[in-house]
């Protein structure tokens, strides 16, 4: 079995998990929800195994390196962080409706990596600039942050849907956790993501200083990560110091995730040093 096969299967498993979470939510079937949790856990296991296998395969090809070096590999890891963070939230808050808004994100990430004709899943040797131990620290911290922001994005969407209706109202939205819980969860995930985004930017800066002799160069990718940082800093200050709650925080979290996506994908359309991450590679 190759890592590609395993990771394709993982895509499929995350898809099933997303479907089961939605099914359990829409038709009020707790049994399907419990199954969804196990399926997600299975997906996470497949994702982990695929990641490790890819690492092993790269050694067999004679230029071993952690599978965190191009767009395909980072998407695989992104899906992994989303699934892991979501499962942790599910366990902490004992609520599976959030799964209907998180598992599909993991599925879409994997599906984009596997199916997009622009993304090569070939294992490539590292170019000189990427040969650094900071690569692993940088990518892992960034994507844990991005994973938290992705789940926060799903929770914020839920908040906005729910806040348009009354708190006690039934129906699909009525099965969401209370708005206060969703709001608190956005805040918690925002803090967690901000810590890791900061660590990601910092490890990137230290790495840039050892590779190019400058820790900050206003390269578009760096700048966009800073823009993302500014947005989440705004969210945290507004909430903690100005007592912003609810819709405004939810919108900031959605805008912040938009900035994450642009930092991740959009910047490849702009010129800069991070262009090795571009689609065709």
């Amino acid at each position: 079995m190759t890592s590609s096969v395993l990771l394709s299967a993982t895509t499929f498993i995350y898809g099933i998990a997303g479907f089961l979470y939605c099914f359990a939510w829409v038709f009020k079937k707790p049994g399907a929800g419990r199954l969804a949790s196990w399926v997600t856990l299975g997906g996470l296991a497949g994702n982990t195994a695929g990641f490790i296998l890819r690492w092993v395969e790269s050694y067999r090809m004679g230029f071993g390196h952690a599978p965190l070096s191009n767009l395909y590999e980072s998407l695989i890891f992104f899906a992994w962080t989303i699934a892991l963070i979501y499962l942790f939230i599910e366990w902490r808050y004992q609520n599976r409706v959030i799964g209907a808004f998180s598992a599909p994100l993991a599925f879409l990430t994997m599906a984009y990596a596997s199916l997009s004709p622009n993304i090569s899943d070939r294992i490539q040797p590292l170019i000189p600039a990427l040969k650094s131990n900071w690569l692993i620290a940088h990518v892992i911290t960034c994507f844990i942050g991005y994973g938290a922001f992705a789940v926060a994005f799903g929770v914020s969407i839920m908040y906005l849907l729910k806040s348009r209706r009354g708190e006690g109202e039934g129906g699909l939205v009525g099965r969401f956790p209370p708005t206060a819980v969703l709001d608190e969860l956005t805040h918690q995930l925002g803090m967690f993501g901000f810590l890791f985004l900061s660590a990601g930017i910092i490890t990137g800066a230290v790495w840039a200083n050892s590779a190019w002799g400058r820790y900050w160069g206003w390269d578009p990718k760096e700048t966009w990560s800073l823009i993302t940082w500014f947005i989440y800093a705004t969210l945290l200050h507004a909430r903690m110091m100005r007592g912003w709650r609810g819709r405004r925080i939810a919108w900031l979290s959605i805008v912040g995730f938009g900035a994450v996506l642009f930092t991740y994908f959009g910047v490849n359309l702009l010129p800069g040093l991070h262009s090795y991450q571009s689609m065709g590679q």
Binding site: I227, F230, I231, A233, T234, H237, A238, M241, R242, A259
Partner: peptide
Amino acid sequence: LTIVLLMSLA
């Protein structure tokens, strides 16, 4: 001011 500055910088 913090919020205005952070948003302006972003």
